[in-house]
Design a protein around this nucleic acid. Structure first.
Length: 167
DNA sequence: GCCAACGTTGGC
DNA sequence: GCCAACGTTGGC
């Protein structure tokens, strides 16, 4: 069979917001990691898991949010470099994120791998976002919203870049 | 399938 | 450290 010259099926990159507590793993930690990459392990919420498993695709962009920070802020941009695959920590004895109920032949929890793209010249705080009307509709700002993996509208992504001084 | 109790998240 | 909001668990 002759080689096909067709390009792989592509779609426009999507944007996501990933939350991380900087005391646990910060954007600076990601920059210092080998190849500036890390497996995004430890997600233990089904809705977030589904995004990681089904919807985060190679080349998608990730807004890296520092939660539980003073003040909470966006710290930089990363990208998806490996799509959903089993999170190894669910099977590690004694690990904080071990899940004894997860069957190795049908793993319950997934991760993706991300790579740092760019640190923001200045962080974009939650107050900066709230002060800009264009942030209307951002899931992040919704009352009671705790989801750690969130889809992010392109317009909101662009807004954050602007506030970060990158445009 | 209901729902009270419990655990977690994350801004404040 | 507080606590509102939310997700999960488990008895019934």
């Amino acid at each position: 069979m002759a080689k096909k010259q067709t390009t792989p099926q592509e779609r426009e990159p999507r944007m996501w917001l990933f939350k991380s507590e900087p005391d646990v793993f910060s954007f600076q930690d990601l920059l210092k990691a080998p190849k500036k990459r890390t497996g995004w392990d430890g997600v233990r919420n089904y809705q977030a898991r589904n995004f990681l498993r089904d919807d985060c695709k190679l080349g998608d962009l990730v807004l890296y949010w520092h939660s539980n920070a003073e003040p909470p802020h966006a710290a930089g941009i990363a990208k998806i470099v490996r799509e959903g695959h089993p999170d190894p920590t669910q099977f590690e004895r004694g690990h904080d994120h071990e899940d004894p109920g997860s069957d190795p032949s049908d793993p319950r929890w997934m991760q993706v791998e991300i790579e740092a793209v760019k640190a923001f010249p200045r962080p974009v705080t939650i107050d900066m976002l709230r002060a800009d009307k264009r942030s209307a509709g951002m899931l992040l700002l919704a009352k009671g919203q705790r989801l750690s993996i969130q889809p992010l509208a392109a317009a909101h992504y662009e807004l954050v870049l602007e506030l970060a001084g990158l445009t």
